Amino acid sequence: MRPEDVPLLFQELAREYADVTDMSVAATGSLARGDHRTGPGGDIVSNLDLIHVVADGADVPEVRALVERRMQRISDTFRIETTSVIAMLPAFRMAGHAHYRISMRPEWFCDGLGLGPEAFVHPGRAEGDQRAALSWMMQPVPYYLAKATVLDPTTNLAKARRAATRLADRFDLEEVRDNLDNLPRALRTLIAERGVTPLESTARYLDTPTHPDVARLVRDAVFVESMGLPSADSMLVLLPSAPN
Score class of each variant (00 low, 15 high):
R2C: 08
L8R: 15
F10V: 05
E12C: 03
R15K: 15
A18R: 09
A18V: 01
D19I: 07
D19W: 05
T21M: 02
S24I: 01
S24D: 00
R37M: 11
P40C: 10
G42W: 07
D43G: 13
V45R: 15
L50S: 02
V53C: 06
V53K: 00
A55V: 00
A58C: 07
D59Y: 00
V60H: 08
V60W: 11
E62G: 11
V63R: 13
R64M: 07
A65T: 12
E68D: 13
M71W: 11
S75N: 08
T82L: 08
T83D: 12
T83S: 10
T83L: 06
S84T: 15
S84L: 13
V85N: 15
V85W: 04
I86V: 13
L89R: 09
F92K: 05
A95S: 13
A95E: 09
G96A: 05
Y100I: 08
Y100E: 11
S103H: 01
M104K: 06
E107S: 08
W108P: 04
F109D: 01
D111H: 00
L115R: 03
E118L: 11
P123K: 04
G124M: 05
G128C: 03
G128K: 00
A133R: 11
A133S: 06
A133H: 04
L134Q: 01
S135A: 11
M138D: 10
M138A: 05
P140Q: 05
V141R: 10
P142R: 04
Y144Q: 13
D152V: 00
T155R: 12
A158N: 13
K159C: 02
K159Q: 01
R161W: 01
L173M: 07
E174R: 14
E175N: 03
N179E: 15
D181F: 11
L183V: 10
R188M: 08
A192M: 03
R194Y: 08
G195R: 01
P198Q: 04
T202G: 07
A203P: 06
R204K: 10
T208Y: 10
H211Q: 02
D213G: 09
V214D: 02
R216Y: 09
L217T: 15
D220V: 02
D220F: 10
D220R: 05
V222L: 07
V224W: 07
L229D: 03
L236F: 07
L238E: 00
L238G: 04
P240H: 07
P240D: 05
S241H: 10
A242F: 12
P243S: 04
N244Q: 11
